[in-house]
């Protein structure tokens, strides 16, 4: 029940929401505007809030001065592979945690949740040593492995929530009709849960695409770097070239924003379900 609103309250509400929208979008607007200025006018007075001339020089410079195309390819390969494998593995573990009752279930769930409390970078040193002895340092396959592990816990918890929304009568019917359990999962449940699974994949992908500390620690050679690792090199130099930096930022943000636009509803659903039910 929502009571009638006075004109003053209405004005306050609209003004507040509008202001917050501007505040939220402004940094994104600003980095985009910077990227389309000509390199010279990025550093010039007075600041212009709209490029005098639209220029793609910063983008061209980015690809000319660094192997940005290679970084993008590395990020794509690592993130897509890790997100796919992690989603598949989590689908199976989430299925077990949603549909079976067993004694160690609480402990397993707890074990997954704890990894969300304790950040992965806490073990950077030991992880580096372990990867050295496995020959996985400076190796994109090694990076993919650790990304899979990092994605699994949250993805499992999220997918478990989606399984809970599907009645188990569905797969039981399939199994009575002669479907195996694996068949029931992949041929009956997966199609029903498709939007949730896609959201989980997107969430994993975006997390891997954005990951910084593990890749900075584990990858050394330029040709194997992912985008965040390369950006870290850009900002570590004394004279940051903000023109190509902003172009790189825009190219990094755009794909994840597009994906999030599709998945945000489900991610919000997963988040609030977990939090509100406590």
């Amino acid at each position: 029940m929502i009571t009638r609103e006075t004109p003053l309250a209405r004005t306050v509400r609209i003004a507040f929401l509008a202001l917050w929208l501007v505040i939220t979008l402004f940094p994104l607007y600003w980095i985009a505007v910077t990227s389309f200025k000509s390199p010279g006018s990025v550093f010039s007075y007075p600041l212009t809030y709209w490029p005098k001339v639209f220029s793609l020089e910063n983008y061209a410079g980015l690809f000319a001065k660094s192997q940005f195309g290679v970084y993008v390819a590395n990020s794509l390969v690592v993130s897509i592979t890790a997100a796919l494998v992690a989603t598949l593995i989590s689908l199976m573990s989430a299925y077990v945690l949603a549909r079976f009752e067993f004694r160690s279930k609480g402990a397993l769930l707890m074990g997954f949740l704890v990894t969300q409390m304790i950040p992965s970078f806490i073990a950077l040193g030991p992880l580096y040593l372990m990867f050295t002895s496995l020959g996985l340092v400076d190796n994109r396959f090694g990076l993919t492995l650790i990304y899979i592990a990092v994605c699994i816990p949250f993805c499992t918890v999220m997918l478990r929530g989606f399984f809970a929304n599907v009645p188990d009568a569905l797969e039981e019917a399939a199994m009575i009709d002669g479907c195996s359990r694996v068949g029931a999962l992949f041929r009956v449940l997966v199609p029903v849960m498709k939007p949730g699974i896609v959201a989980a994949f997107i969430f994993n992908f975006v997390n891997c695409w954005n990951e910084l500390f593990l890749s900075v620690t584990l990858i050394n050679s330029d040709g194997k770097k992912t985008i965040p690792t390369a950006l870290n090199d850009f900002i570590s130099s004394y004279n940051i070239d903000w023109g190509s930096m902003s172009a790189a930022a825009v190219l990094t943000i755009v794909p994840t924003m597009v994906l999030f636009a599709f998945a945000s509803r489900y991610i919000v659903q997963g988040l609030t379900a977990g939090a509100v039910k406590g």
């Binding site: 939220t24 979008l25 994104l28 975006v206 695409w209 954005n210 990951e211 910084l212 965040p228 950006l231 870290n232 930022a249 990094t252 943000i253 994840t256 924003m257 994906l259 999030f260 945000s264």
Partner: peptide, 9 residues
């Protein structure tokens, strides 16, 4: 939207 962006970025 800010959520699609990494904290680092």
């Amino acid at each position: 939207f800010p959520w699609a962006i990494s904290g680092f970025l």
